[in-house]
Simulated assay, not measured.
Amino acid sequence: VEGASRKEIKSTTYQRTIAHRRVEEAERRVSEVEVKLELSPEDRWDENNEDYRATLKYIKQRKYQLAVDKLERLVVQRLFELTKLNISGTGYKLRTHISRALKTRSNTIRKALDKYNKLAVEVQPPRPTLSFKEVVSYTFLAEFDLLRDARQDVRERPWSKPVYREAMERWYKLQCARDEIDRLNIEVQRLATHLRDEELDYESAIRTLSTADHGLATELRLLWDLCKSVNHIHRRRLFQIAALP
């Protein structure tokens, strides 16, 4: 090549040789696949083949989704680090470490964003591109619009609909209520037994102290009168529970 140095010619020749070897290796692998699948040269795809177009579209969509996943992960990590940075009680060393991590994260987000924007215009239909300022301005996960373009659109999930979520919540409450009823049936019997035993114990203690220590017996009776008024409320509630179907 005219004007090129000997070193540049040698480097270009080396790169050409490497590229030629890669092409030969790719052709060899393609031939092996064609033999295994028993494909003829006429079965090879070209730009006008429908299967080729569908596969190319799938590959672009797949690359785009992976770029979205990576960008989403980086932004969410940044949100968590910002939250940790603002938590009271975070030490100086940890704050310094988080600040450095945020700087590194910002550079990583820029690279991931460049890749996302490049792939966003290649998919069908094209997705809107984003700027670095828009991405780093997200402060809540609800603002992260990229979730709609994730590998699985969560908006199409049944649990994303408010009516379904409310029905699911009520169903779980119903299941818990049944378990709670079984538990309360045991606790009600225990409470009724405790009220009966407490009354017998107080009456027995008061009778015993009436002859040995009249003053203490009087004090114990006053305490029992207070407890008896409370137990009366408990018994009334227990009767109401027993009357339930």
Rank of each mutant, 00 (worst) to 15 (best):
V1L: 11
E2Q: 04
A4F: 06
K7W: 12
K10A: 09
K10E: 08
Q15P: 05
T17A: 15
I18S: 12
I18E: 09
A19G: 11
R21M: 15
K36M: 08
S40D: 15
E42I: 12
E42L: 15
E47S: 08
N49E: 06
T55W: 15
K57G: 13
Y58E: 09
I59E: 07
K60M: 07
R62H: 01
L74V: 02
V75S: 00
Q77P: 01
R78G: 02
L82Q: 07
N86R: 01
I87D: 06
G89P: 01
G89D: 00
G89W: 03
G91T: 15
R95N: 09
T96Y: 02
I98C: 07
K103I: 14
I109V: 08
I109L: 05
R110D: 13
A112M: 02
A112Y: 02
A112C: 03
K115M: 01
K115A: 02
Y116V: 02
K118A: 09
V121Y: 05
V123G: 07
R127T: 10
R127H: 11
P128D: 15
T129G: 15
S131G: 14
E134V: 05
V135K: 00
S137M: 14
S137E: 09
Y138C: 04
F140N: 12
F140I: 06
L141F: 05
L141H: 10
A142R: 11
E143W: 12
E143N: 06
L146Y: 05
A150R: 02
Q152A: 10
D153H: 01
R155N: 14
R157K: 13
R157A: 15
R157W: 15
R157V: 07
P158V: 10
W159P: 00
S160N: 15
E166L: 14
R170T: 04
R170D: 06
E180T: 12
E180D: 14
N185L: 15
I186H: 02
R190E: 03
R190C: 02
A192G: 13
T193Y: 11
H194V: 02
R196I: 08
E199I: 09
E199F: 09
L200F: 00
S204C: 08
A205V: 01
R207V: 09
T208V: 03
A212K: 11
D213H: 08
H214V: 10
E219C: 07
R221V: 04
C227E: 12
K228M: 01
K228C: 02
K228F: 00
I233C: 08
I233T: 04
R235D: 03
A243S: 08
